[in-house]
Structure formats: C-alpha cells, structure tokens
Simulated assay, not measured.
Amino acid sequence: MRSERVGGAVTWGLLGAWAVHDLEELATVPWWLRRNVPELRKRFPRVPEGVWRWAESMGAAEFAAAVGVMGAVVGTASAAGQLTGGRSGFYQGALTGFGLHGLMHMAQAAAVRGYTPGSVTAPLVVVPFTLWARGRLRKAGVLRPARPRDAVAGLAAAGAATVASHLVARRLLRPARRPS
C-alpha cells in the first residue's frame, strides 16, 4: 500500500457529516417521539417500559443539549484524527461507530416500516461518508485492519457516548437546588 496524506476532508469531514445528520435529528426527534411512542409501545411490547418513559420525557431542550455534548465528542475525535493523520484509534473508532450508527437508523426505519429521525441522512450522508473516509484511510495506509471486535467496540462506544450525552444534558438542564 502506498502512503498518502489524509486531509481535513477525511478527519474534519466526520464532524461535518455528523452535523448534517444531527440537524435532521434536531428537527425531527421531539415531534416524532411525541407522535410515535404510543404506537411503538404497542408494536414492540418487549422494549422495557423505562425506555418508553425516557423517550416520552425528553424535551427539545434536552435533546439539543445532548446533541451539543455529542458534538464535543465527535469534534474531539475529528481533531484527534487531524493531529495524527487519521491514525488515531479514537478517530477511527468514532468513524466506525458513526457508520454503524447510520446502519442502525436504516434498520430502525425498516423495523417501523416508515420514517424515523435520522433515516434520511443515514443512507445519503452517514454511510457514504464513512465508506469514503475508510477508503481514504486505507489508501493512505493508516486504516487499522477491520475486526469484528472493533465493530462491536465502535457500536458500544457510540451507544455509551449517546447515553452519556443524554445524562449530561439532563444534569445540565435540571433546575438548580436551593439550599434550605
């Protein structure tokens, strides 16, 4: 493999693709949840009730704050990628997690047989960007070999970052307690 330079389109492109995708989610998640959770609760009775209660309790401000927290994570991953010429394990893991996240959106839309937030940009932006960026990393000779455990780790990290961003958002938006 010949070694080529990995440019900002590959590394900072992760942040850009993520921003496009999350703009769709920002515009659709709050109303979509209000409209669809009651029906989803009936169609998918095996989903724990706590998941449905959490989804119903999430407001637009909390979701926007969680997106901001996740943006900081993705921005940090992109910066790590830029600083290392794409070699950063954190960057490559975030890229893998982002692509798998896109596939999850597509699977969700298939499961509900309709639109779900993120399902438009997943096949148009998320998956194509991920494949293109991985191709550029491979061409530059810096892509780590793909292993099933890396895919699992990427999905787990993306899931953990999502949960953490929502927990931070709830904490940030919780009314301050006044001393009694």
Rank of each mutant, 00 (worst) to 15 (best):
M1N: 10
R2E: 13
S3Q: 05
G7K: 06
T11M: 10
W12K: 01
G13H: 08
L14H: 02
D22Y: 15
L23R: 09
E24M: 04
E25G: 04
L26S: 09
T28C: 10
W31I: 03
W32N: 00
W32D: 04
R34F: 11
N36H: 15
P38Q: 06
P38N: 07
P38K: 01
E39A: 15
L40M: 14
K42D: 08
K42E: 12
K42C: 10
K42Y: 06
K42I: 15
R43W: 10
F44H: 02
P45G: 06
R46C: 07
R46K: 06
V51H: 08
W52G: 00
W52P: 00
R53M: 06
R53K: 02
R53D: 15
R53I: 02
W54F: 12
A55N: 03
E56V: 02
A60G: 09
A65Q: 11
A65N: 03
V73Y: 14
V73T: 08
V74Q: 02
Q82S: 09
L83D: 09
L83M: 09
T84R: 03
G85K: 00
G85C: 03
G86M: 07
R87N: 07
Q92S: 05
G93P: 08
A94D: 05
L100C: 07
H101P: 02
Q108P: 04
P117L: 14
G118M: 09
V120R: 04
T121W: 07
T121M: 06
P123G: 05
L124W: 09
L124F: 13
V125N: 05
F129L: 05
W132E: 04
A133F: 06
R134Y: 11
K139A: 15
K139V: 13
V142L: 07
L143F: 12
P145V: 14
R147Y: 08
P148N: 04
R149M: 13
D150K: 02
A158D: 09
G159E: 10
A160N: 01
T162C: 08
T162F: 14
H166P: 02
A169F: 12
R174G: 03
P175R: 12
A176W: 14
